[in-house]
Design a protein around this nucleic acid. Structure first.
Length: 821
DNA sequence: TCAATAGTTATTTTT
DNA sequence: TAACTATTGA
């Protein structure tokens, strides 16, 4: 049943030919094609700036062009720029685009996510931050299980103190810059939560691990409390750029102010869109934008309102909708692309019928020449994907669902990583507990309890307490310790790849999954882990976070201004024997927790994209379907009670609408299966908030509850029900992590030779015959090829490819490298 | 130590 | 409905 005849043919992408510019920018090639607002933003001087960047207004281009422009004008060197993003993807994109524009030394630049930059900072100043040199990072699930252990150890009721919620509380406190001592507990509940927070903090410190929020807070605190260090970084970074400023939380803004306080005269460039703030529930404060404008005395707010993405009707809908929100900074998107097609609205009798309609419409678009990956189906909550998947699967249409488990979050991968972490740091109790009895080796809950008691009493780690447990459990535990010890011995001197292969075998994981009837996929993932490690090591500059230290970049003035030499010296502590700066394994483990891996559509596979509206942020598609536009769902019932919640839902809708380039469909259903019950829904208020002139109803407007839809619904579900068991089997093959979807390596980026060579030649002369590209000999690692030389004097370091020993970073003051011919 | 069973809960989630 | 957790029984 096609709900309507195909009334007009889908026009292939017309291409948004840029209109003849009324304004002719200066001759510089970099600035060519920028509109006046973009041009103004890019060429602002060294002053605080707030850029209101609407959806599709060329924000990333402005950001990268500004950095390139600053450098090309000689206003700043790579070392003087910091650019912060929220996602690894955004950071990577910036680096890629930048290196395409300019011959830049990407390694020296501080471009990364908030957490990535904090990691880099703390790796350099671990001693001052009170961390062990090889500290590891807990991901979200590690954090919850660590908290769970604390709650158990304190013998508290897990019903009353739910680990996840306590985790929320702790993260929330940290994001407000609060330590346990800073929180005044008003009631029993929060008093105990503070105690848990304190105990958790002690535990993390003991184990040498930090969670995501801790990365931010430690960095903030160290800068706050160490004037010399703060001075150094403020002096160093002359230009700072922050992407997605509307998503920053309180701590992130405070963090920024440590690097660049108002009035210090640095060029702080904050880019954001208050209308796209959809993470308030996670602590994001849109208010940071107006605070920034006020505190930094921003002279001119630049608004980027010219949209290069969507046709007029789509923008009209977006503008009209968002105008209903109050407290906006004020912005209206415009386009020169013409009205385009109307926004189509469809009503269905049931969620099943909706899925069926969607399927047919999407197929029609595809037949008219639209690639499947240019079609996105958006929904408010994940649960809604089921019916859609079912329909697509039955029709044999390739699709991809965003937002499942990511690569490094898969159980088998986490198991392997836990073994690796134990090799690096045996006191990591989280990792210990994860694998002490996996694969099963006769260590039960009782034994673990005894061990935990012993550890608690002596204040030592589980690993260190093993000898305290006697009996059968004790001997099994001793066996586990022996296993870890032997893994550490066996992996000495191996490449990262070999280390991982070795532990996958010795740990018994491979054996376990080989015997498991559906362990094949898990084995594949473990193989993929090996590939990921290989790809990681091959990337030029893999250990950059450990070695890109401030020492060699100290502006002469900074030392004069009092940065103690000791601070600088504390930065690098190479291995005493080999001179190695950071082991590839340690670097890889950090990478694994900071970047959970992709779960994005595989390139080359043409599949329809399914995702929540949240995960669609930042993406764009030729055709977009927004589904489930019903009161209670979108806007979600949990957000409808207060005005702020409703406004955030409206912004969410705004984000959804502005994803579409050419075609936008809005869809809702009279009934929907929710929590096992059929719910009768009213269409979303957001539909009423759109301009009638931009819409085209495919079904009669205000159609009442019609004839016998329930019957149709019933039979439809019965047809669908038999196929539920196979839902998901039709998903497109999962992306390969290492090989196929590994990030484009920095090595592959076109870093022009001239600059690289010049840099190499410059330092090359200083290091007694060592030349980049030539052979070197190391007493332990043997022969290798010198890849990079940088720094000078005591801080000089080299990156060497030792073939079977892999790529390594070495401190020349320690490592004995001799040139060979 | 595990597998079966009962009970519970149900937005969004860049790091 | 279905997915996840916690407990129980073999």
């Amino acid at each position: 049943m096609s709900p309507h005849p195909q009334d007009d043919l889908f026009a292939p992408a017309p291409g948004f030919a840029a209109p003849a510019p009324a304004y002719v920018p200066p001759s510089s090639g970099l600035l060519k094609g920028l509109n006046p607002e973009q041009h103004a933003a890019v060429t602002l001087g060294q002053e605080p700036a707030l850029i209101l960047a609407g959806a599709g207004s060329g924000k990333t281009r402005v950001l990268t062009t500004r950095i390139a422009w600053l450098m090309s004008q000689g206003l700043v060197t790579p070392g003087g720029v910091m650019a912060v993003t929220f996602t690894n993807k955004a950071a990577k994109e910036m680096v890629t685009r930048l290196s395409a524009m300019l011959p830049v030394n990407v390694r020296g630049m501080w471009i990364g996510t908030f957490h990535g930059l904090c990691n880099r900072f703390l790796r350099a100043h671990w001693k001052l931050a009170g961390l062990p040199q090889g500290f590891q990072i807990l991901d979200a699930s590690d954090t919850v299980s660590a908290i769970k252990r604390v709650i158990k150890a304190m013998k508290l009721d897990e019903e009353r103190y739910v680990p996840k919620q306590v985790g929320w509380f702790i993260a929330g406190a940290k994001e407000d810059g609060l330590r346990p001592k800073d929180i005044e507990a008003r009631d029993e509940q929060s008093r105990v939560q503070v105690q848990i927070y304190q105990a958790y903090e002690d535990q993390c410190q003991r184990e040498g691990v930090v969670d995501f929020a801790e990365l931010m807070l430690r960095t903030y605190e160290l800068l706050r409390d160490n004037a010399a260090l703060r001075e150094h970084y403020q002096h160093r970074f002359q230009y700072l750029l922050v992407d997605e400023f509307q998503d920053t939380n309180k701590l992130q803004y405070a963090w920024l102010k440590m690097f660049a306080p108002p009035g210090r005269g640095q060029g702080v460039f904050a880019v954001g869109d208050d209308d796209q703030s959809i993470y308030a529930f996670r602590g994001a404060r849109v208010g940071n934008m107006s605070d920034f404008e006020r505190e930094y005395r921003v002279k001119r707010v630049v608004k980027l309102e010219q949209n290069y993405r969507s046709f007029g009707n789509i923008l009209d809908a977006a503008n009209e909708l968002i105008s209903r929100n109050s407290h906006r900074l004020g912005k209206n998107l415009r386009t020169e692309a013409g009205p385009g097609e109307p926004v189509r609205v469809n009503e269905s009798a049931s969620d099943f019928a909706e899925a069926q309609w969607l399927l047919e419409e999407a197929q029609a678009l595809h037949r008219q020449g639209l690639a499947r990956q240019e079609i996105a189906i958006l929904y408010r909550s994940n649960a809604q994907s089921r019916v859609l998947e079912s329909a697509l699967f039955n029709a044999g249409v390739p699709y991809r669902v965003y937002g499942g488990l990511r690569f490094f979050e898969r159980a088998e991968v986490k198991h392997a990583l836990a073994y690796l972490r134990l090799i690096e740091n045996a006191n990591d109790d989280t990792s210990f507990l994860r694998v002490v009895n996996f694969p099963a080796r006769g260590i039960g809950a009782r034994t673990i309890e005894l061990l935990q008691d012993a550890a608690r009493i002596s204040g030592r780690s589980l690993y260190q307490s093993v000898s305290a447990v006697a009996g059968k459990g004790g001997s099994n535990l001793a066996g586990f310790v022996n296993l870890v010890e032997s893994m550490r011995n066996l992996t000495q001197g191996l490449t990262l790849r070999e280390i991982i292969e070795q532990i996958i075998e010795t740990s018994g994981l491979a054996e376990f999954y080989r015997n498991d009837k559906d362990g094949a996929e898990r084995l594949e993932n473990l193989a993929e882990l090996v590939n990921a490690a290989e790809a990681f090591v091959t990337q030029e500059g893999f250990g950059k976070d450990a070695v890109a230290l401030p020492v060699d970049e100290l502006a002469p003035g900074a030392i004069a201004e009092g940065l103690p030499r000791a601070v600088a010296a504390a930065a690098v502590t190479p291995d005493a024997e080999t001179g190695e700066i950071m082991s590839p394994l340690a670097a890889f483990l950090t990478h694994a927790s900071l970047e959970a891996g992709d779960n994005q559509a595989q390139a080359g596979q043409d599949a329809i994209q399914l995702m929540t509206v949240h995960s669609a942020k930042g993406l764009e598609f030729d055709a977009v379907f927004i589904t489930g536009l019903e009161e209670g769902l979108f806007p979600h019932e949990n957000s409808m009670s207060d005005a702020d919640g409703l406004e955030e839902e409206r912004r969410l809708m705004y984000v959804a609408i502005t994803r579409a380039r050419q075609r936008l469909y809005l869809s809702f259903s009279q009934t929907r299966m929710l929590h096992g019950q059929t719910r009768y829904n009213v269409k979303s208020r957001f539909l009423e908030e759109l301009p009638e002139s931009a819409l085209k109803w495919l079904t009669p407007r205000n159609q009442g509850f019609g004839s016998g839809f329930a019957k149709e619904y019933q039979s439809a579900w019965e047809r669908g029900a038999g196929l539920k068991s196979v839902v998901g089997a039709g998903r497109v093959e999962k992306p390969a992590y290492g090989a196929a979807s590994a990030t484009p390596s920095f090595a592959a980026a076109p870093v022009p030779k001239s600059m690289k060579q010049a840099a190499a030649e410059k330092v090359g002369a200083e290091h007694g015959g060592l030349r980049v590209g030539k052979g070197v000999f190391h007493t332990k690692f043997g022969e290798g090829v010198l890849m990079t030389l940088e720094g000078s004097g005591a801080d000089a370091r080299a990156q060497v490819n030792f073939g079977r020993h892999g790529m390594k970073w070495l401190a020349l003051s320690v490592a004995k490298l001799t040139p060979i011919d």
